[in-house]
Design a protein around this nucleic acid. Structure first.
Lengths: 140, 140
DNA sequence: CTTTGTGCAAAGCCTTTGCACTCGC
DNA sequence: GCGAGTGCAAAGGCTTTGCACAAAG
């Protein structure tokens, strides 16, 4: 992910305003490998700036996602997850017990051509590997 | 997918009752390649049995999913999609414009071992290929 | 100063659930 | 008959939105 300073630049370039709330969201995402939900980002932000509302967090996350600075994942854990790592092409591993999401750096380059219908423009492909993480497995 | 008659058997074997509503859901799913939402299944069922409620459809779909007779997909199109094809291992192609979901018979067998953490039990892997289908592309 | 952002609370969408009635077994 | 299934409507979780005030450029 870009640094908070770079994001500030990008926002300014788009005519978006720089507010302490937005910077707090940038900070909360920076080098955050946990694939947080909007709710977790909000908690992290509120810890240091108690008045920030969920609305502001959602809006900032959506702005970032539209600018392509983060990506939004739907992995079936109820809420959307946000991934600050958009530079490296990667996939995800999901623990169905605790909802943990982890990056997976595998190359998934199947010969798609064979089964993709004529005229379908492929934009991207996401692999989600599901299972149970060690600490959840240990609990049983 | 199993035939409605086979599903009837399976339901009976589980001590679940056979009702015309449930059979109507079985019929609506049988050999249905559209990956319908709960709502579409409901519409199809209502066409022939106008009093069936969404509740009943959801419950039957959930029962089927728990029994492993259908699978539930979350592909980011808003509502969950139900896939009656659980026999063939396959993946999915999603049109981000119209929400169409199509089966994709590609082998995605990356060497997961390399990047999966110690102790993580892999249950399954789903590939979602996103893009835009021909008829949506033609609209622009 | 004008335009954009913020906070609150209310509404929206999809799905599940509580209750009383009905029906399969 | 008994217990499971059904229909309705209301509630639940996550996300978005309308409004009035505050703040950035």
């Amino acid at each position: 992910m870009r640094t908070p300073a770079e994001l500030t630049e990008r926002f300014r370039a788009q005519g978006l305003k720089i507010t302490p709330q937005r910077v707090a969201v940038f900070d909360a995402l920076h080098d955050n490998p946990t694939h947080p939900t909007a709710e977790s980002v909000h908690s992290a932000v509120v810890a240091r700036m108690p008045t920030v509302s969920l609305r502001t967090v959602y809006q900032t996350l959506n702005d970032l996602a539209e600018m392509g600075e983060i990506s939004r994942l739907e992995v079936g854990t109820g809420s959307a997850r946000f991934d600050p790592n958009v530079e490296e092409r990667h996939h995800h591993l999901v623990c169905e017990s605790c909802g943990m999401v982890r990056d997976l750096h595998v190359e998934v380059a199947p010969e798609l051509g064979d089964d993709v219908p004529e005229g379908f423009e492929v934009v991207g492909a996401e692999l989600v590997v599901r299972g149970r993480c060690r600490s959840c497995a240990d609990k049983d």
